[in-house]
Each structure stands twice: as C-alpha cells, then as structure tokens.
Design a binder for these strands. Sequence first.
DNA 1: AAGTCCCTTCAAGAAGTTTTGAAAGAACTG
DNA 2: CAGTTCTTTCAAAACTTCTTGAAGGGACTT
Lengths: 192, 192
Amino acid sequence: MPSAAAKQVESNSSEPLWRDAELRAADAMGRLMEFWGFRRHMGRIWTVLYLSPEPMTTLALSETLQLSSSAVSLSLAELMRWGAVRKTWRPGERKDFYEAETSMWKLLRRVYERRELNLIRETIETFAAAQQQLDGSRSQLTPKDRRRVDHMRKRLSRLSALSRAGERLVGLLVAGQMIHPADLRAAEEQEQ
Amino acid sequence: MPSAAAKQVESNSSEPLWRDAELRAADAMGRLMEFWGFRRHMGRIWTVLYLSPEPMTTLALSETLQLSSSAVSLSLAELMRWGAVRKTWRPGERKDFYEAETSMWKLLRRVYERRELNLIRETIETFAAAQQQLDGSRSQLTPKDRRRVDHMRKRLSRLSALSRAGERLVGLLVAGQMIHPADLRAAEEQEQ
DNA sequence: AAGTCCCTTCAAGAAGTTTTGAAAGAACTG
DNA sequence: CAGTTCTTTCAAAACTTCTTGAAGGGACTT
C-alpha cells in the first residue's frame, strides 16, 4: 500500500496541495473498512468521493489513488452494491461519474442488516442443529457419555441464548433503538 | 477447512457420538471469530474447550480439531493474550491443561476496549491531522482552490464528528451502559 | 546431569486473496 | 456501421496469511 507519507515524498508539484491530506483521510478510512471486512480500496475510494465537491470519473479516481482502472471498477461495483456510491451522468459527457452516499448512518445500518444479522442467524441455526443432534443421540449413550453430553447441552444452550441476544441487539441497532449491552450478560447468566 | 459434514463422513466408530455436534458448533464459532478479525482456529479451539467439562491438553485439542500441535500452540497463546483461555495444571501431570473463560461478555468487552477503541482513536487522530494540514495550506491558495479545500474541510469535520461519536458509543458499550445508535446520525447531521 | 516429554518458535511451503494488464464488451459518434 | 471511448471481466502474477514439520528450549525425572 502506498502510504500517504510515501506519496507525499514522491509527489511533484503537479499534485494539488490538498492531495496529501485527502490521501491520509482516505487511508484512515481504508484501514477502518478493511478492519470491518471490506476491501481497503472501497474505503479509500468512498472517502475520495466523499471529500470531492463534484462527482468523479473512474479516471480521476485511479489517478488520485494510483490504482488500475480494473481495481477502481471492481471496488466501485461493490460500493454500489452496498449503496455507498451512486452513478451519475452529465449531459454531453460520455463517462460515468460517481458520487458518495453521504449518510454514514444509512450505510452502517444497511451493512448490519444485510451482513452481520445474516451471519448471526446462520450461527443460531448451526447451534440449534448441533443441539438437536445431541438430543437425538442421548438415548443411545452409556451413563458416562450421557453426563458428558449433558454438559455439552448446557453449554450449547448458553451459546444459543447468547447468539439470540446478539441478534436482538443488532436488530435494535438497525431499528435505531436504544440498546442495553448488559442484555448480553443477562442472557448468558440466565442459562445458569 | 474440513467442514463438520465432511468430518462426519470420514469419521470412524472410534469417534465419540457427540464429536460431530461439537465440531459443528466449533466451526460456527470459528466463522464468527474469523469474521470478527481473529483466526478461525481461535474460535474453534475456544468452543471445544467451552463445551468440555474438563480442561484439555494440547494433544486432545489437536486430535479433536485435526490440527498440528504448532497451530494449537499458536492459537492458544493468542487466546490467552485475550484472556479467553487459561492454563491450569494437575497434580502429578506434566502436561499443561487449558480451560475456556466462560464469560462471553467479559471477552467482548475486552476486545472492544483494547482493539476497536484503539482503532477508532487512531482514525480520529488521522482525521485531525488531515484537517490541520488543510488549515495550514489554506492561505497559500487561489480562490478556486480555496473553495475546493473549504468543501473538504467541511466533510472532514463531519467524518471527525462521526468517529468521535463512534468512540463515545464504544466507550459506553464497554462500560455496559445504554447506547443510542441514533447519536451517530445526530453527530453527522449536526455538522450541517 | 542425561534423558524424556512437552511446548514454542521458526522458516519453508501451501493456500488464499488482491492486483493487474489484456481482452472482451457496451455505448455512443460521425 | 465502423470507429472511438469507456467499462467490465478474466486469468495470471504478486502479495499475504496460514499451516506445518523440524529444530530448539524448558522443566521435570531418574
């Protein structure tokens, strides 16, 4: 990754004075996005668009961030899938122009709704399936194994309770409602 | 990754009946942990320990999850760094035994506190630095460039306000207090 | 203090992901 | 409708991360 600092050194006078600050901010956002499970460039591109007063072309983006046009195209496509970027057009211009969705809140919400919530639900289902499997096998066990399985069942139902509590929490988050994180603690303690 | 289903097929009768359910749950947790930025095996190992009534040795773990002993050692070391697993010993036994920290809430808290909060703070600092850089260059600009930079400054201060709101939110989460996600929206809207 | 057993570290190899240049494909223009 | 311009797709190269077996180190035992 060409860091903002490295960029600064190699930048010649044809670069606008604000370029360095722009890249710093873009890189910071890129790190955040990468941490959050997206491609680094998605955060960088979104930020450049967000900081720009005008919609930008793919060419402008690839020059600003020193990316190949395919990298720009790929990241823009994914950003659009998340509604983080919109295509716009200009009369008389052939190229596509892109602009950033400016409501971070909308974006956060959408990601939690589409991605995190799904993941939690899959987890809940898997735990439920594992529990059922244990319940099914219980009768065929020796007393020793049965004690062992009973312990697993207790623990598994705690994990289930926790993940359901997580689902509720994220559901509230998405709905913009108050959240009490201690609900999680309560959920796990309730299952003795 | 050897999935729980694949494991089931190849498993011979020497495997305990509950092994398949155990691996399913472990894999589900592994996926969750991987999504959350940790190594997959950390989630798998933690789950096996969590489901076990007794502390386990590295050998037992590597047999259960079909991992090399170095992989187990590596993941256990990191789990211990996060306080998710503890070493215990048994009188007369030479080996180390490991047991899972059972309070998920404690663990979540610790990760948000040590890792996410740090990341947000670094981001806040980077945005602040970028803002300062813009402020410094403003006087040397042509009127056209100045308008451009002024737009960037407004957007950057919105990003700053957002990330500070994020910091507060995570801070409250860590403190176990109520959170109002709409604060984020408010933060971004306040900056006109 | 030599031997054994276990755990950790390390460097190499494997696997997975990202990035790129080139080619194919759209969409418009003359 | 041939040519131009721009975008997307794709397979290969580059890069990262993960995994492993082997070597090293520590701690207990005889």
